[in-house]
């Protein structure tokens, strides 16, 4: 290894388009997983809020899913879904459920009882109350869940490279780097994956600020 630089910048400059493509693919796979996971989790969370009895089983099942290693899950899924993007997305979506369901339920639980009573007493319908009162007030905890889920998903996308070069995003760079004893690819893949995770986190923080102007009033308004 002596004499060789840690990162071969010449290769990086020569393969900017490949790197950009892998990064976009990585982001796309992660976004799809978090988006689908959020949709499923939101439904499960609403069900849990309406009927508390299902909350225990839902968290238990999503907890068990969370403990299954992704490699094992791939092995189980490949016979059914083949070497496809679906095989990659199913574990990624499954891993978001635990975090997202818990946070969304916690968000709805955090809506103060007096606010709900006032909303009922003033004649909100159930749907209006949910969309106009409960959902906005649950946003801080929902977004906290999305931040955790997106960061962990962005890290996990790399294992999708085991299914195929079209499904691993930056993981493909890392895999190739390991196979070819070419550290530059490993460093670039890892660094960009970390950068994506940071970027997603910051984006969600911004989103939360934009959606909850009243939370700032609470801090600065004293």
């Amino acid at each position: 290894m002596t004499g060789r630089p840690l990162v071969d910048w010449g290769w990086v400059v020569g393969h900017l388009d490949d790197i950009a493509l892998a990064t976009l693919q990585h982001l796309g796979i992660a976004a799809l997983a978090v988006g689908a996971g959020f949709a499923v989790s939101f439904g499960l969370a609403l069900w849990s809020v309406r009927d508390r009895r299902v909350y225990g089983p839902i968290t238990a099942i999503s907890g068990i899913l969370y403990t299954i290693p992704s490699l094992a899950l791939f092995a189980v899924l490949v016979p059914f879904t083949g070497l496809s993007v679906v095989t990659v997305e199913i574990p990624l979506v499954a891993y978001t459920l635990l975090i997202l369901v818990r946070n969304i339920v916690a968000g709805f639980d955090a809506v103060p009882a007096d606010v709900l009573e006032a909303a009922n007493g003033m004649g909100y319908t159930r749907g209006q109350r949910l969309l106009q009162v409960e959902l906005p007030l649950a946003i801080p905890l929902i977004i906290a869940g999305l931040r955790l889920a997106s960061v962990s998903t962005i890290g996990l996308v790399t294992v999708g490279s085991l299914i195929g070069d079209a499904f691993g995003g930056l993981g493909v760079l890392i895999k190739d780097g390991i196979a070819a004893f070419f550290p530059t690819k490993i460093y670039v893949g890892a660094a960009l994956s970390v950068a994506l995770a940071f970027g997603a986190d910051i984006a969600f923080i911004r989103l939360q600020r934009a959606l909850t102007p009243w939370a700032r009033a609470r801090i600065s308004g004293r």
């Binding site: 103060p112 007096d114 606010v115 709900l116 009573e117 006032a118 909303a119 009922n120 007493g121 003033m122 004649g123 909100y124 319908t125 009162v133 906005p136 007030l137 909850t212 009243w214 609470r218």
Partner: peptide, 22 residues
């Protein structure tokens, strides 16, 4: 109709229940 009834009755509670996001 229950929501129509409630909309024409003023309701004030001890904890007030103002909507913090509005």
């Amino acid at each position: 109709e229950v929501t129509a009834l409630r909309r024409r009755i003023g309701y004030v509670i001890q904890q007030v229940g103002l909507f913090p996001h509005l």
